[in-house]
Write a protein that binds this DNA or RNA. Structure first.
Lengths: 251, 251
DNA sequence: CGCCTATTTGATCTGATTCAAACAATGTGG
DNA sequence: CCACATTGTTTGAATCAGATCAAATAGGCG
């Protein structure tokens, strides 16, 4: 349960994230703490890795926010996922050489780059850590599925309520939420690109949620006033996030 | 390149599938060939694993066709993926205890159930195989992303053309396509549930594709008359399938 | 203050849905 | 081998959720 103070903040946030999805033994945490990294700070709206790239390192979000996306031939954007501190959005590049999508910052962010080589060495030495990371990529896929059902089959209001719930729960899992409130660095245009909606329609649906007194969303802070109500409107069931760690559990 | 005749057809199709996404050494194939399994035959439209289940085995499709899906509160269905012989649609259950979606047959199918226990033993013994299976789940996620961009941002015609391309290429990768034709066990209603469309609209979009002389889709056989044209309409770029095996490559 | 980005509002349009019904194919049992 | 039942495909008409276009307002920040 302890989080040694001598840890680098980079290792610390990664361990906190992994412990939110799976229990970790001391030696496994030590193993993770041996990972070398190079920290870089990037401004907002900057590509980190691009479709077609063949990265030789993975990117850990330490501070800030990022998203993965891809453009259609007509230039429309689909965002696949949002990433917060603790996430390694391009972990897949460890086993899939060529990027089939891009990764970018959504606000000024601090990123830690970990060489594939070192990561592979740690995974060989510590197979339990390999399993946790595999598990992480599987949860990633579960989130894709959940967004898919939203985009394909749910109303705009439901989708938006759902993603609000998801981000809050995930933020809480790594200790970045304060009760039912958290930072909200996502613009309405970005919500639209994530959920297959126009900015205008996102705006109107958000007003709908506000008028039902479910949320407050001012500036860059999301505050959920009626969690049960929001969950219900968003058909949100956190099972798919598989938060079975030894850290705090989400509501 | 050889595929020993003494292999069980179950091991054989699995090895063929895995070799389509990654080269396999002889000892790795032998390792896979030690996997025990129990074969079962199921009729069409039968649940194999259900949301909420905690399976203790994985399901390999040997013959037939399957899909993963989930229902919304209003009873609408979203299909997440189609699965053909060689696929292990619930491989994720190895690391995610609770199913967050369901798996069902789409036609009478032969399935081989492999205990998690045996699978884990093989993965411990043969880490390279573990990497290939991890890779397989990552490709799975890449397919989700590609469907997401379709549902969220592409026209009905484009989405449908895209999924036609995808299934044909994947069928070819495991030797189940004949030139530009393959079995098509997917109904229009199922295409709709997969791509977030109504049956009626699927039907009209398919007629559009036919009228452009891109495809023939009669009974349960898909025949692509103009592959380049279909790829273009579907904005199909097979990169996301990561077919970097030592078996035949897709066009 | 002034610029840039994000949010909000209004009006119009359209791709896709829904409902309803006919039609075709496939398979089953007698 | 045919009649019937079942499932899948096709067609038509009306409707709607959400897109698009255009412009105004409101924040945030150097």
């Amino acid at each position: 349960m302890s989080e040694p103070a001598e840890l680098h903040p980079e290792h610390n946030i990664l361990i906190r994230k992994l412990r939110s999805i799976s229990p970790l033994a001391d030696d496994e945490m030590h193993c993770i703490a041996t990972l070398p990294f190079l920290t870089k700070s990037l401004p907002a709206d900057q590509d980190i890795v691009r479709e077609g790239d063949r990265p030789s390192e993975c990117c850990l979000v330490v501070e800030g926010f990022a998203c993965r996306y891809k453009l259609t031939d007509e230039g429309k954007r689909q965002i696949f996922s949002f990433h917060m501190p603790g996430d390694i959005p391009d972990l897949q590049s460890l086993h899939l050489k060529v990027m089939d999508h891009s990764l970018m910052t959504m606000k000024p962010s601090k990123l830690a780059f970990i060489p594939h080589e070192s990561l592979n060495r740690v995974l060989d030495r510590c197979p339990r850590v390999a399993k946790v990371l595999w598990r992480d990529t599987l949860i990633d896929a579960a989130v894709f599925r959940e967004w898919m059902i939203g985009i394909g089959r749910r109303s705009a209001e439901t989708r938006i309520a759902h993603v609000l719930c998801e981000v809050l729960v995930r933020m809480r899992a790594v200790g970045l939420a304060d009760g039912h409130a958290c930072e909200w660095p996502i613009t309405q245009a970005e919500i639209g690109d994530a959920l297959g909606l126009s900015t205008v329609h996102v705006n109107r649906s958000l007003q709908e949620l506000r008028s039902k007194n479910l949320i407050t969303l001012r500036g860059s802070v999301l505050s959920v006033q009626d969690w049960e109500g929001l969950k219900e409107v968003g058909e949100f069931d956190p099972t798919y996030l598989h938060l079975d760690g030894d850290a705090e559990r989400a509501a």
